[in-house]
């Protein structure tokens, strides 16, 4: 593949922790292999800055949380053949989406001496709330293998496939004892999308939902189970209001608990 025909790739950052970009920056020596196969047109943290150039694939990390973000994501969409949202922030508004149910203006006034100088929208929203997204990669963080599989599929002209299993299924396959059944721990595995490798239950702890809601997630049944384990409405709401708090399925489950906000 010569330089002329290399797919042009951009990585854009919005409100985030930078952790999903690390899926590329942490590739080690494979990063140089990737750089040889694609043309990294814009990837500010790695060096190239050309945010407005046409690309074949744009990866977008982070949630939309300022008026400027909305304008920027529209320009990116216009300049990208394929737009992939990477990670919980870009897919579901992220942990900072926890402010969506709060009084943002009051929070700014409590944290900053000059509240008028802080440009911030009332809501932290996913990319798909503003522009068409071709593919969403879940996870907090997304993992490198998942990112490379998506890039490879796109290079071959295929549509990347997302996992539809639940963490529960992955956990059973690996043969871990169920933390909820055996130890009464309030685990989100039954309703969470797989992809992490069932890491938390493998340590004997609760899944806390990094990959967001799985397909056909029965959150009502899980809410009932959490109540049987002794969690009150607030604790149940907080279980669903974590890393992927604004994912519609988790948001609805949290609201059905009837618990108010702290």
């Amino acid at each position: 593949m010569d330089g002329e025909n290399k797919p042009r790739v951009a990585v854009h950052k919005f409100s985030s922790c930078d952790g999903c970009q690390l899926a590329l920056l942490n590739l080690g020596e494979d990063l140089l292999t990737l750089a040889a196969r694609v043309e990294l047109v814009h990837f500010a943290e790695a060096g190239p800055t050309n945010p407005d150039a046409w690309v074949d694939v744009a990866f977008v990390e982070g949630s939309m949380s300022t008026p400027e973000d909305i304008e920027r994501i529209r320009r990116i969409r216009e300049q990208s053949r394929v737009l992939i949202a990477i990670g919980a922030c870009a897919v579901s508004g992220g942990i900072q989406g926890l402010r969506n149910q709060a009084d943002g203006a009051a929070w700014i006034a409590q944290l900053y001496e000059h509240p008028g100088a802080i440009a911030s929208l009332a809501q932290s929203t996913p990319v798909s709330a503003h522009v068409k997204v071709d593919f969403e990669l879940y996870g907090c963080p997304v993992d490198s293998a998942q990112m490379l599989a998506a890039v490879n599929a796109l290079l071959l002209g295929a549509v990347p496939r997302a996992s539809t299993d639940k963490v529960c299924t992955e956990c059973k396959r690996q043969g871990h004892p169920c933390v909820m059944v055996s130890r009464g721990i309030a685990c989100l595995g039954p309703v969470t999308r797989s992809g992490c490798g069932a890491l938390c239950p493998s340590l004997g702890r609760d899944c806390y939902g990094c990959y967001g809601p799985a397909e056909n997630a029965n959150t009502d049944a899980l809410t009932a189970q959490f109540a049987r384990l002794g969690l009150d409405a607030t604790a149940i709401r907080q279980r669903f209001q974590g890393i992927n708090s604004q994912a519609p399925v988790f948001l609805a489950a949290a609201q059905r608990t009837g618990a108010g906000h702290d």
Binding site: S15, S65, T66, D69, I95, Q96, L98, R99, A102, G104, W107, I108, Q110, L111, Y112, I118, A119, S120, Y208, T234, A235, Q238, G242, H261, D262
Partner: peptide, 21 residues
């Protein structure tokens, strides 16, 4: 960098959740 309000949304959370948050 837009403010992410971590200090505020930690309020009300249980100590066991803090390292993950």
């Amino acid at each position: 960098e837009p403010p992410r309000f971590f200090e505020k949304f930690l309020e009300g959370h249980h100590y066991s959740e803090i390292p993950d948050l």
